[in-house]
Design a protein around this nucleic acid. Structure first.
Length: 297
DNA sequence: TCACGTCAAGCAGAT
DNA sequence: ATCTGCTTGACGTGA
């Protein structure tokens, strides 16, 4: 099991998701921002390797406005050597990579404009992975989208629109359950129709379905990942103690986490910790898992 | 230097 | 109707 955290590292003093406002878009501004984001991504990956955190989610802000109509710059060409060398590092160190487009990427929207922009945004993510020459073990995780008052139709629209995507996107795309509209079973149904693996978010499912069976979930999820997809990815979060149901806590809740690790035996997966304290929480988790396996022998 | 209004984009649920 | 949260706050103007 590899343990990772998303997008941001708070220890090393750089930001890999710098952006700027659309109205200040210039070629210079874009190039300098992407350069700086790539510099920081490299530093984060080196930090992660030193600290044995071999799973990382790359920020969608790596190339600001990449899929926006304003983008007239061939950033792929400008930075292809940079992407290639970062990709070589990732492969050399055996780092698992994921990406997660934002809330505006909605593949099942009734608006064809939204669907087209979403496909463009997905293609941008896929291009990053492709420029790094990563295999289909790297993944782009996407929620199903909206319900629009008719869940069955909306599920079918997702499947239809998925089938229209280009092969570069399909190679990397996985479907993730959310906490209010589409649960694990919905994603499994989509997977059966599309072949897309399911990324299981444990926290989302625990909000959606009280007392779900973790082992059953992991068994069903596992079947959607083929050899070329690698072992399944999971998202894990801790509930904020005094926060609303569904609020992410700042820190890893150790006892809950150890329960989860024990209950998830014997399934294999890579674990993304969606916890505000990022690499700090991931490092704690790593220590807990190490100590726990020593304890169990 | 700092405060704070705003930022490309969608949707659902709470207030 | 308006606000909030979402994988993640950061940008940028004005004081």
């Amino acid at each position: 099991m590899k343990i990772g955290y998303p997008c941001i590292n708070r220890s090393i003093g750089c930001s890999g998701n710098k952006t700027f406002q659309l109205k200040s878009f210039t070629k210079e501004r874009l190039l300098e921002t992407v350069q700086s984001n790539l510099d920081c991504l490299e530093k984060i990956l080196i930090f992660n390797v030193i600290n044995h955190l071999l799973f990382f989610r790359i920020s969608s802000d790596l190339v600001p406005f990449a899929s926006h109509p304003i983008m007239s710059i061939n950033w792929q060409e400008e930075f292809k050597n940079r992407f290639k060398s970062i990709g070589e590092y990732i492969k050399e160190k055996n780092i698992r990579i994921s990406m997660h487009p934002g809330q505006y990427t909605v593949l099942n929207s009734p608006s064809s404009d939204v669907v087209q922009r979403s496909a463009a945004e997905l293609d941008y993510h896929a291009q990053i992975l492709e420029l790094m020459d990563l295999t289909s073990e790297a993944k782009i995780q996407l929620h199903v989208g909206g319900v629009y008052g008719n869940k069955l139709e909306s599920l079918q629209r997702f499947i239809r629109n998925y089938r229209q995507l280009n092969s570069r996107i399909k190679r990397y795309l996985v479907v993730e359950n959310d906490e209010r509209s589409y649960c694990l079973v919905d994603c499994l149904n989509i997977s059966a129709e599309t072949g897309a693996p399911v990324l299981f978010d444990v926290f989302h499912e625990s909000i959606f379905t009280k007392n779900f069976m973790l082992n059953t979930a992991l068994e069903l999820q596992k079947e959607t990942w083929s050899d070329s997809d690698g072992i399944p990815m999971l998202d894990y979060s801790s509930q904020k103690a005094d926060g609303k149901m569904g609020a992410h806590s700042d820190d890893l809740v150790s006892l809950d986490f150890l329960d989860f690790i024990n209950e998830s035996q014997p399934y294999e997966f890579d674990l993304m910790l969606e916890i505000k304290n990022k690499e700090k929480a991931a490092l704690e988790a790593l220590e807990l898992v190490k100590a726990d396996s020593r304890f169990r022998g």
